[in-house]
Structure formats: C-alpha cells, structure tokens
Simulated assay, not measured.
Amino acid sequence: MEYAGKVIETVKHIRETRLSRLRPLNEFFDHHRLSRPSDMNEATSRITYNTRHFSGNYGVVVAVLSVYALLTNPFLLIAIAVIVGGFAAVQRFGADPLQVGEHVITQKGLYGVLVVVGLVLFWIAAPLSILFWLVGSSTMLIFGHAALIEPGVESEYAPVEEV
C-alpha cells in the first residue's frame, strides 16, 4: 500500500512539473513558422530557445520513441519481463533455502542464476543498440525541429522575464 502511494505521488509530481510545460500542438507543429536558419549562429540561438520553450513536448517525443523502440523489439520485452518476474518470484518464494537432493539452493544462489540468465538475455536482445538508436533519433528530431522553428515574438522578451 505504501508503494502505491509513492507511485501516485511520483506521477502527480511528474504531471505538475513536466506535463505543465507542454505547449499546444498547433504551436508545436506551426508550419507557418518553419524556415531555414540563415547561419549557424541563428540555428544555435533557435535551438537554445526552442529546447527550453518546447521541453515538455520534446520529452513526449522521447517517450513515444522509447515505447516504439520497445514494441519493435519483442525479445527485449521478453527479457525485461523474465528479469522483473524472476526478481519478484525470488523475492516472494525464495526466502527460505530449498533442499534439492544433496544441494541447498539459497536466495543468493537464485539471484545469481537470475543475473546470469538476465545477462545472456540482454546480450541477445541488444539493448545498447536500441539506446543508441533512441539517442540518435531523438537528437535528430529535436535539434531538427528546434532549428527549423522560428521563435515567437515572446522570445525577444525572454531575457527580461528571467531577471
């Protein structure tokens, strides 16, 4: 019960802090403000401003890409399920040592087997390739969007608001 309360509090905190920064979709996808930056300085200033301005939207983009990456690699989902389920099963049923023939299997031994099995499953599922794909695709999408969207009129007054 206490764990569920912590999860609910965490979700409320995320909703209040991160999701409050979401900009409307018509502002995020405003094709009237699309233009190619004239030079690298303008691109850098656009990226700097837009990454702060659209930070909530970019977080959603990363989350959607993460879910997509997990759903397109079913073996990774299976590996995660086996590891999480295995830890839950060992925690619940493996507290007492188990006598099998001449061998005594302890909770520590079960965790050791689970770690070895988990490492083999993760080696086959290649989560690092998904991580690198996620970093690369997120970076390209976010920086591309941030560089191509012209900041609004409010960007001229942003330094005044921060003071």
Rank of each mutant, 00 (worst) to 15 (best):
A63L: 07
G144E: 09
D96T: 15
Y3G: 00
P74Q: 03
P24K: 12
A126Y: 08
M40S: 11
L110F: 01
F87T: 13
L119K: 01
V115A: 09
A79T: 08
K6P: 00
Y3P: 00
P97V: 12
G112L: 10
G144C: 07
S155W: 03
V61F: 07
V61L: 10
N50D: 07
Y111M: 07
R21V: 02
G86V: 11
I78E: 07
A43P: 05
Q91K: 15
G86R: 09
Y111L: 07
I142H: 01
F122S: 02
Q91C: 12
I80D: 02
E162G: 03
D96Q: 14
V120C: 04
G136D: 11
G112S: 09
T72F: 01
G85D: 11
I47K: 00
I124R: 14
I8K: 12
E42W: 08
R46K: 03
Q91G: 15
G56R: 01
G144H: 04
L19P: 06
L25I: 13
I130A: 05
I142N: 00
I80Y: 05
I83V: 15
D30H: 04
G118C: 10
Q107N: 11
S138D: 05
A43R: 10
F54P: 04
M1W: 00
K108M: 06
L19E: 04
V116F: 10
Y58I: 01
G101L: 13
D96F: 12
L25G: 04
L70S: 05
R15Q: 08
H53A: 02
A69W: 08
I78M: 11
A146W: 06
I105G: 02
L19R: 06
M140P: 00
T106Q: 07
P97A: 12
R92Q: 06
I8N: 05
H103S: 14
P74W: 07
V120Y: 10
T17G: 02
R36S: 05
V62K: 01
P97M: 08
F54R: 00
A88F: 13
L134A: 03
H103C: 08
V116N: 00
L141C: 09
G94Q: 06
P37F: 07
L119D: 00
L148Q: 08
G152N: 05
V84I: 15
I8T: 10
Q99W: 03
E27C: 01
R18V: 14
I142P: 03
D96M: 14
L114W: 11
S38D: 08
G152W: 04
A158H: 13
A89I: 13
A158E: 15
G136Y: 11
T17I: 13
E156T: 09
Y3D: 09
E2L: 07
G56Q: 02
E154T: 08
V116E: 05
V82D: 01
I78P: 04
V116H: 00
S20F: 04
G86L: 08
G136H: 10
D30C: 05
G5N: 10
S66W: 07
Y157W: 15
A81L: 10
H31T: 15
I47L: 03
R36D: 00
D39H: 15
L128N: 05
V160L: 15
L131T: 12
T139V: 12
E2W: 04
I149K: 09
T48A: 15
Y111N: 08
